[in-house]
Design a protein around this nucleic acid. Structure first.
Lengths: 218, 218
DNA sequence: ACCTATTTTTAGTTTTGTCTAAATTTATAT
DNA sequence: ATATAAATTTAGACAAAACTAAAAATAGGT
């Protein structure tokens, strides 16, 4: 399994190829910042290895074996992210780039020991669930803040966009995982929100709200 | 700097290319388990980048820039080895293979934080000195056990061969870094040694003694 | 149904790092 | 000094992973 193959599987998974959905070469190319023709080449290669189902002009979806491999890479990525934050004091906007490299290290013992050192975390620093060793994938009962009705409240449990600029914005505005958020008012005009965050009032744009996952309180 | 380039620089350094010595392509090829013609290709490439001095049919030596780069890779390799042993309970015969991968991770912050987490170790699990961030290389006052005169004693500070079989042999015989060793008798016939190790007597072959570094007591 | 625009694939090329086989240079031994 | 052996380089080829440009297939609109 080469680094490139691993990156393709991961991307296909993130685009939904684990749910039997057919992902187009164009979508993959755009996500990976490469050309569709390169994706076609790799699709054939991965199909030969039994990791994807590939139908010409239709797209690719992951096989069971492909899902398993993708999950193991995602598991490694997220565990390394937790390691960087908890053990090396990285901030959550710094971890992605390094984890992209670390996820390709080949040693089952290494990642199991990292898991143990971190006391088997369930979520990464962005709130994304960490697949278990046997490929189980936690699903969370969450929704986007932008979809919460007025006057409901919940706890921030994850981010949809985990780019550095967005994460830095959240830091600046004291928005962090675990913080309580209540929707006070929704502006019809631009969908912006008036919220109560940890007791303080705040206004945020729709674009922000559409990238925050919240778990509704019972 | 590609992975392959880094591996060449590291190998050239270990073969003595940092001391202005010219290392032959054959020696490098043998060490890296590749072909001399491949080494020639890479020698040209590294020379173009100003990392080695290459003279056709003579061999290569590292430039200052090449030495600096090689030391930074060796630094990373050895720090990761310490990390694996101290934080993840790897044994000293398990660390090399994984460190070979980890040494190529590109993040200055990462390795500095690992260094800090480990409290700035000076030696790796095999007793090899860890270069400092600014490329200083500790030299130890050490000699091979096989070269110690009869009736002198010292402390085991390193291994020359750090292959898994040798290290496992040492474990089995309770030979570890920090242990006191006294040479009781040298057998003329096969150069084998009769030693006192941590108070207990033991016989070891010349081959073993020639792979153990000892620091003589004053 | 047909034309057009878009998407996808094919064919051919590039780069990196490797190899084999042949040619060349250096070293060695009489 | 010269033949021979050993080491080294050159030339040409290959595989992986990417690209460009051209061809082919699909999808949409009328």
């Amino acid at each position: 399994m080469t680094r490139s193959e691993e990156n393709y599987l991961k991307t296909i998974f993130h685009l939904g190829g684990g749910n039997a959905q057919s992902i187009t070469t164009n979508a993959i190319a755009e996500q990976m910042e490469t050309k569709p023709s390169s994706v076609t080449d790799m699709a054939k290669k991965l199909a030969d290895k039994g990791l994807v189902n590939y139908v010409k002009y239709q797209g690719v979806s992951l096989t069971d074996s492909g899902i398993k491999t993708a999950l193991s890479i995602i598991r490694k990525h997220r565990l390394w992210e937790v390691f960087l934050v908890k053990k090396l004091d990285f901030t959550w906007d710094e971890v992605h780039e390094v984890a992209e490299q670390l996820e390709h290290i080949k040693s089952e013992k290494l990642i199991d020991k990292i898991d143990e050192l971190l006391e088997f975390p369930k979520y990464d620093p962005h709130g994304d669930p960490i697949p278990t060793k046997d490929g189980k994938f936690m699903e969370r009962d969450e929704q986007l803040l932008s979809e919460m009705p007025v006057n409901t409240q919940g706890v921030c449990v994850g981010v949809k966009d985990s780019s550095a600029p967005f994460l830095k914005f959240l830091d600046k505005n004291n928005i962090a995982l675990g913080h309580t958020i209540k929707v006070l008012e929704k502006e019809d005009f631009d969908q912006s929100l008036h919220i109560e965050l940890q007791g303080k009032e705040l206004r945020i744009s729709h674009q922000i709200a559409a990238n925050l996952y919240v778990k509704k309180n019972d």
